[in-house]
Simulated scan of single mutants.
Amino acid sequence: MTPKPTAAEVKANLIEAAIRLLSDGGPEALQARKLAAEIGASTMAVYTHFGGMSALVDEVAREGFRRLSANLGEVEETDDPAADILTLALAYRRTVVDNPNLYAVTFGQSQPDGQKAALGDMTNEETRQNLSDEGIEAFDYLVRGAKRVIEAGRFRPAPEFSVAAQLWSAVHGYITLEVAGHFGDGENGVDHILVPLATALGVGLGDALEAATRSAQVSIEAWRAKEGNIGT
C-alpha cells in the first residue's frame, strides 16, 4: 500500500504542479481546481496547506527565486569581475527564458487567479529584511558582483546596492522585451542588444570602453563555450 504523503510532500507537490501549469498554460491556468486535479486531490488541499491561493502564489514566487539563485550561484568568479557581471546576466536570462511564465509571477508581472506575489524594495538594507530570504539571496548575487567591480576600480565608487539595482533594471528590462518577442529568435538579441547594453552600462558606471568591451567578449565567449553554443 502506498504510504500517505506528508503535509510537506503535499505542499511541495502543489508548488511543482503550479509551476507546471504556469509553464504549460500561463497564469490563467493556475487555479485551485486545476492544481488539485494535477496531484489527484480535492481543492481543499490548497486551502489546507496554504490557506488560499495568495499564499500559494507567494510560495511559487519563492521557488522561482530559489531556482534563479541556484543558477546564479553556478557562475564562477574569475579575475575579471566586469566579465562576471555579464555572465551573471546571461545566467539570469537563461533562467527566465526557460520558464517565462514562472518569472512573470515571481517578479509580480502577472497575477494568477487575481493574486500577486508579495514584493518590496530589495535595495534598502532596512526594509528588505521584511522580504523573502529567497528574493534577497538572488539579488545579493548582483550586489556582490557590483561590489567586486567597484573594489577592482573598474566602476567609480558608489553604493553597491544602487549599482546592483541599475544592473538588475537593465538586464530584467532586456529579458522582458526578449521574452515578449521583440528581439527575434534565439541568441540574436544577446549579441546585438544585451552585450552592447552591458558594455554601455559599464562605461556609464565608470569603466573604460576598451576594458568593458574586452570583458564582455571574454564573458560571452566563455558562456557560449560552456553552453555549447559556439558559432550561434
Rank of each mutant, 00 (worst) to 15 (best):
A41K: 13
A41M: 10
S42Y: 06
S42D: 10
S42H: 07
T43G: 06
T43D: 08
T43S: 11
T43M: 09
M44C: 05
M44L: 03
M44Y: 08
M44V: 12
M44A: 15
A45T: 00
A45D: 00
A45K: 00
A45N: 04
V46K: 02
V46Q: 02
V46H: 01
V46E: 03
Y47D: 11
Y47P: 07
T48C: 05
H49E: 04
H49T: 07
F50I: 03
F50V: 01
G51F: 12
G51I: 15
G51R: 13
G51P: 03
G51K: 12
G52H: 09
G52Y: 10
G52T: 11
M53Y: 07
S54R: 15
S54D: 15
S54F: 06
S54W: 06
A55M: 03
A55Y: 00
A55Q: 03
A55N: 00
L56K: 04
L56T: 01
V57R: 01
V57N: 03
V57C: 04
V57G: 00
D58L: 01
D58Q: 07
D58S: 11
E59F: 07
V60P: 02
V60G: 00
V60W: 01
V60L: 06
A61P: 02
A61W: 05
A61L: 04
R62M: 05
R62Q: 08
R62I: 09
E63G: 07
E63V: 10
E63W: 09
G64S: 08
G64D: 02
G64M: 06
G64W: 03
G64H: 05
F65K: 01
R67T: 05
L68V: 06
L68H: 01
L68Y: 02
S69D: 04
S69N: 05
S69I: 05
S69L: 07
A70F: 09
A70S: 14
N71V: 09
N71P: 03
L72F: 10
G73H: 02
G73A: 10
G73Y: 02
G73Q: 08
G73W: 00
G73D: 07
V75A: 08
V75G: 02
V75K: 03
V75C: 04
V75I: 11
V75L: 07
E76K: 15
E76G: 11
E77A: 14
E77Q: 13
T78Y: 14
T78P: 10
D79H: 11
D80H: 11
D80R: 14
D80F: 10
D80E: 14
P81R: 03
P81S: 07
P81D: 06
P81G: 11
P81W: 05
A82G: 09
